[in-house]
Design a protein around this nucleic acid. Structure first.
Lengths: 181, 181
DNA sequence: GTCTATAGCTGGATAGAC
DNA sequence: GTCTATCCAGCTATAGAC
């Protein structure tokens, strides 16, 4: 039942925006009345929280599914992970906004949910290290580039390929500046 | 009086978030009651709209104040404009969110206000062209990089220098990939 | 121009019957 | 577990007195 409620919440968020998720509307979407939702979640914030956690689990799973840098080489690994990330963001703008922008007034993820986000950041760090990117400045430049590609793709060409298809070129630009291959 | 109201609105937005700007609170901040605000603005959306327009005017002014690429060369021009932009974003996160993120549920800029944003984008295009960046792919990569730097700076180190100080290095990376100087 | 008063709505959450 | 009924708080906006 929690599953059904969360699915409905995602659907409303995708079609009407994150702020469109209200207790009455959400309950109606699963054939209930608002008060019944409190049997499954302590409140509305807990629903956003579960969504935030779920998004981070999905991102973690997508990242774990990538081949290791040792297998495919740093260049290919960076391309793969960037494509996976930008496509992940672009596949669901409501999820992107919930996870990476502060677009739900008055809501902040709980500590437990946020821990999943930190876990993903740590996984990324270790992935970058395996790609030979270990100094802090390079990591910061890298994260700026990747989040920039993702936000442009989501904001200006949702569901398209406009920035996704520039990823290889961008990775080569980044690697080229770190010394010739 | 419109000026005073807008100043108060910015102040509330900065301290409590954009959604903290309400008619009662805003009126109280200028020593009025809510209904009196309707003498100066037709409604709340018009206030967001005026703020959006004002932000874009400020950005335009900041950009116009930059030395021309012909004077300082492409590299310096790109560094200057990126620093100016990231600092502009980082100086006021409420303004950043209003202008570049969709963080006011239910509000969209009016056509007139949006025209100012388009004007700024066109100015940027012409600036980039003067820097020798004319193909669409390079422009897209460039905007991704710049917005990425800005969003990382605003989100993770507001008011600091963590990404601002990486701008020179990033511009060199970008230019390096376009053929040796 | 500014006010009081209030309409009219929407939202999350709770009490208590069944 | 689900419901009806309702509370309570918030909001924008308007009517009409002064």
């Amino acid at each position: 039942m929690r599953r059904q409620i969360l699915d409905a919440a995602w659907e409303i968020a995708r079609s009407e925006g994150l702020d469109g998720v209200g207790m009455r509307k959400l309950a109606a979407a699963v054939g209930m009345r608002a008060p019944s939702l409190y049997e499954y979640f302590p409140g509305k914030d807990a629903i956003y929280d579960a969504m935030f956690a779920e998004g981070n689990e999905q991102l973690g799973a997508a990242h774990r599914a990538l081949p290791a840098p040792a297998e495919v080489g740093a260049r290919r690994a960076l391309i793969n992970s960037t494509q996976a990330f930008v496509e992940f963001c672009s596949a669901d703008d409501a999820r992107f906004q919930l996870m990476f922008q502060r677009s739900v007034p008055g809501w902040r993820p709980s500590d437990e949910a946020y821990a999943l986000a930190v876990e993903n950041l740590e996984r990324l760090d270790s992935f970058l290290a395996q790609c030979g990117i270990e100094d802090a400045d390079s990591r910061d430049i890298w994260t700026a580039i990747v989040t920039g590609l993702a936000s442009q793709q989501v904001t200006n060409d949702l569901g398209g390929q406009r920035w996704i298809r520039l990823i290889e070129q961008t990775v080569d630009m980044f690697l080229g500046a770190r010394g010739p291959a």
